[in-house]
């Protein structure tokens, strides 16, 4: 469109306005650059983690890292197993809360709820998904710890945060993720399967348990893995309500306070601009970061596999 810049030599010029072609090429390049930016971000993450963690790996006393005593970087104690066990306990508690509640909510929304009920309940669940994790952290410290953990296990346990209180908080945070991914998987099951089951005389509960859930199983596994990965990576709830400040002794008891990998990173970073701590404190931050990154990347890749399998089947 528009008048060609140069008068056309052949009888009919079908090449059009050169400005359009130039703009077309330019936009193609700009958009391609934007897409490549995501690769750059990944490269920078891996690069900066590896470069900064390298000093730690080279200089630290590995006996300290592999010991099962305590995580206290300011005293040069770097027991990584303390943090990994902390992460496992909290993730375990979180999944005990999130898996049944999230899956149950998803089954109800997908198989039982009438469209009008669903139109109300689904957005409420999405609001829950939008609540920032600091808010859950304060809630876990000020309400879950005294009212739930304190009531169940005695006053003393509920006074400050604990891994149990933080784990429940993280679990609440991951319910919406668990629910929405597994609901998507169940809604992707063709209704012909449900109709066939009903036509054979199966009750709705039987149809759900024997037909829909088996057909959606890979999506449900994906939901579980994604929620686990999210729980391992959750920082603020544990930082606020985990019951430990900036050091933790090795423990696997959920009623104790401890640190996860993420909370240890946050508390290490909190103090870095004050007193110069152990020279390895900041490199240790990156080292924990790279362990965490590798763990969640692995889980996410597994989940991705399962999600894609759902798409391929139906």
């Amino acid at each position: 469109m528009g008048v060609p810049l140069t008068p056309p030599e052949p009888a009919v010029d079908l090449s059009g306005d050169p400005r359009r072609h130039r703009r077309e090429r330019a936009m193609g390049l700009v958009l391609r650059g934007a897409a490549l930016a995501s690769l750059l971000v990944s490269a920078l993450i891996v690069g900066s983690l590896a470069a900064n963690a390298a000093g730690f790996v080279a200089e630290v006393d590995w006996g300290r890292v592999l010991a099962n005593d305590a995580w206290n970087p300011r005293q040069g104690r770097f027991s990584i197993s303390t943090l990994v066990v902390g992460s496992l306990v909290i993730t375990g508690v979180a999944m005990v809360v999130a898996a049944p509640l999230g899956l149950g909510a998803a089954v109800y929304l997908s198989e039982y709820a009438r469209p009008r009920v669903r139109a109300v309940l689904k957005p409420v669940l999405e609001v829950l998904a939008g609540i920032p994790s600091v808010v859950l952290g304060v809630f876990a410290l000020n309400w879950i710890a005294p009212e739930v953990v304190g009531t169940l296990f005695g006053e003393r346990e509920g006074r400050t945060g604990s891994m149990l209180a933080a784990g429940i908080g993280v679990g609440i945070l991951t319910i919406p993720l668990m629910a929405s991914v597994s609901e998507d998987a169940m809604r992707a099951v063709p209704s012909a399967l449900r109709q066939a089951s009903a036509a054979l005389g199966a009750r709705r509960a039987t149809t759900t348990l024997r037909v829909v859930l088996p057909a959606a199983v890979s999506g449900i596994v994906a939901a579980f893995v994604l929620a686990t990965s999210r729980a391992i990576g959750e920082t603020m709830v544990v930082f606020i309500a985990g019951g430990a400040a900036d050091s933790a002794t090795f423990t696997a008891n959920p009623l104790d306070g401890s640190l996860t990998m993420t909370a240890a990173m946050a508390s290490l970073a909190t103090g870095t601009d004050g007193v110069r701590a152990d020279a390895l404190a900041v490199p240790a931050l990156y080292f924990v970061g790279i362990v965490l990154f590798a763990l969640t990347l692995g889980l996410n890749l597994v989940a991705d596999r399962f999600v894609r399998r759902v798409r391929r089947t139906y």
Partner: peptide
């Protein structure tokens, strides 16, 4: 996968 990277790791990226 980037969407699944824990937010605290992005903090390390920002710091570095």
């Amino acid at each position: 996968n980037l969407a699944g990277v824990p937010s605290v790791v992005y903090g390390l990226l920002g710091l570095a």
